[in-house]
Amino acid sequence: MTQKITIDGKDYAVGKLSEEARNQVVNLRVCDQEIAHLKQRLAIAQTARAAYASGLRKALASAEVVEH
């Protein structure tokens, strides 16, 4: 089965691309993987932040309010 890639709505057989084009396809795939990884890390950080904010709200609920 021929591996295909779609760019700007056109299908291309990867095996028929120039070496330079194949290298760029690899670069794009690496970038896509890194973006997916960073999105996962961001989701983890956002979840942790929400948990810390919740903990802070609970701690503040029992704290004495000091006004200036």
Rank of each mutant, 00 (worst) to 15 (best):
A50D: 09
A50H: 03
E34F: 08
M1N: 14
K58P: 00
I44K: 00
L17D: 08
A51L: 05
I44T: 00
E19A: 12
E19S: 09
C31V: 14
C31L: 12
I35K: 15
A51T: 07
E64R: 12
Q33R: 09
L60T: 04
Q33Y: 07
V25Y: 07
V66L: 10
L28E: 12
E64N: 09
A53W: 08
A50N: 08
I7Y: 15
V65I: 02
G55N: 04
L28Y: 14
Q3I: 07
S18H: 10
R49L: 08
V66F: 04
L56R: 05
K16Y: 13
S62N: 12
A63D: 04
H68N: 04
Q46L: 08
G55P: 00
Q24G: 05
T2S: 15
V65F: 01
A63L: 02
D11G: 01
A21E: 12
Y52E: 09
N27K: 06
C31I: 15
A36I: 06
A13Q: 11
K10D: 11
E67H: 04
L60F: 02
A63G: 03
E19R: 11
Q24I: 11
I5Q: 02
M1F: 15
A13T: 14
I35H: 14
Q33W: 06
Y52F: 07
E19K: 10
S18A: 08
N23K: 13
H68Y: 05
G55A: 01
H37A: 14
E34K: 13
Q3C: 04
R29H: 12
V25F: 10
A45P: 00
K58H: 05
T47S: 06
E64M: 07
A45Y: 03
N27A: 12
E34M: 10
T47G: 03
E67C: 02
E20M: 12
D8Q: 14
I44P: 00
G55I: 00
H37D: 15
E64I: 10
D32E: 15
I5E: 02
V25H: 06
D32V: 09
T47A: 11
S18D: 10
K39E: 13
D11E: 08
D8A: 13
T47N: 05
A45C: 03
G55D: 03
A61G: 13
N27R: 10
H68A: 05
L42N: 14
K58F: 02
K4H: 13
V26E: 07
Y52A: 07
Q46S: 09
T6W: 11
S18W: 09
E67G: 02
V65A: 02
A59C: 06
Q3E: 13
A45I: 03
